[in-house]
């Protein structure tokens, strides 16, 4: 249990078995197995190009697997009909690395979009209430009439998360939630991920290469190397190893942290 959320180890919300995915001759995922339990935050770490984002896109049905089983909330995403997949997607929130806010719409319209399109009989007062609530939860009520181009990187991430939360998903998929953000904003986003887990009782799959993010948000951490999980467990278990492929990852971040400290001292 972390953040006061109980993890139900008997209830798998995502179940991946022997997953393979290639692009041409490039094998990205090769026989990957994964479980995500109800109420759990699972962090998947790995180098750029190791297949982290491909994994999350296969789970959300944006990419089709070449082989293997991808089961989300009891349904195999690559075997169900388009209508069933759309219904399933209402239970999955996807926070994109680039935030992927609709440029031509204001924050209100961005938040309104999934709501009015999926809940046909919803009244305008209910829409307003849901938007207010979700903006309060991400602490950005003042941005309601702004365009995405007027927001900072951190604000975009928050609104991107708010847009997924408005449909009250059971599973959250975060693709590099802290990429490109300053350390303070990164910590705020990490806290938000934990708050989402508590308030919305979500199970989350967090793709990142940020050690701080993994440490702060993960109940369990899995390290992906060459298209498969090399190891998984608690943050300390994963990084208490002599495996160079993991140590190198850790050391790189450690060097960066030290460099940042030196720079701060210099300033």
């Amino acid at each position: 249990m972390k953040n006061g959320v109980k993890i139900d180890r008997n209830n798998r919300v995502i179940f991946v078995k022997d997953l393979e995915k290639s692009f041409g001759e490039l094998n990205v995922l090769s026989g990957l197995n994964m479980d995500l339990f109800k109420g759990e935050n699972l962090v998947v770490m790995g180098r750029s190009g190791s297949g982290k984002s491909v994994l999350i896109k296969v789970i959300s049905g944006l990419l089709k697997p070449d082989k293997g089983v991808v089961n989300v909330l009891g349904q195999e995403v690559d075997k169900i009909s388009t209508e069933e997949l759309q219904a399933l997607r209402l239970k999955i929130g996807f926070s994109f690395q680039s935030s992927a806010l609709y440029d031509s719409m204001t924050v209100r319209e961005n938040l309104e979009f999934p709501l009015v399109r999926n809940l046909k009989n919803i009244k305008s007062k209910e829409v307003d209430k849901a938007i207010e609530e979700v903006l309060e939860n991400v602490d950005l009520p003042q941005t309601i009439n702004q365009l995405p181009s007027e927001l900072s990187g951190g604000q975009k991430k928050r609104i991107g998360i708010a847009r997924t939360l408005i449909l009250k998903p059971e599973i959250m998929l975060y693709d590099e939630p802290t990429a490109g953000l300053d350390p303070i904003t990164s910590v705020e986003i990490n806290n938000l991920i934990n708050e989402v887990q508590q308030k919305y009782n979500t199970s989350s799959l967090i793709i990142t290469h940020d050690l701080t993010c993994a440490k702060l948000t993960g109940d369990r951490v899995a390290m992906i190397v060459d298209g498969n999980f090399l190891t998984q467990g608690s943050f300390d278990d994963v990084f208490n190893t002599n495996d160079e492929r993991i140590r190198g990852f850790y050391n790189y971040n450690f060097i960066n942290d030290n460099t940042n400290k030196k720079l701060n001292n210099f300033k």
Partner: peptide, 18 residues
């Protein structure tokens, strides 16, 4: 094109919109 490369089309798809 810009919606495609900035993943806005994917975002639409995962929010259950065709």
């Amino acid at each position: 094109g810009s919606m495609k490369v900035t993943e806005q089309i994917d975002a639409m798809e995962v929010s259950a919109t065709n």
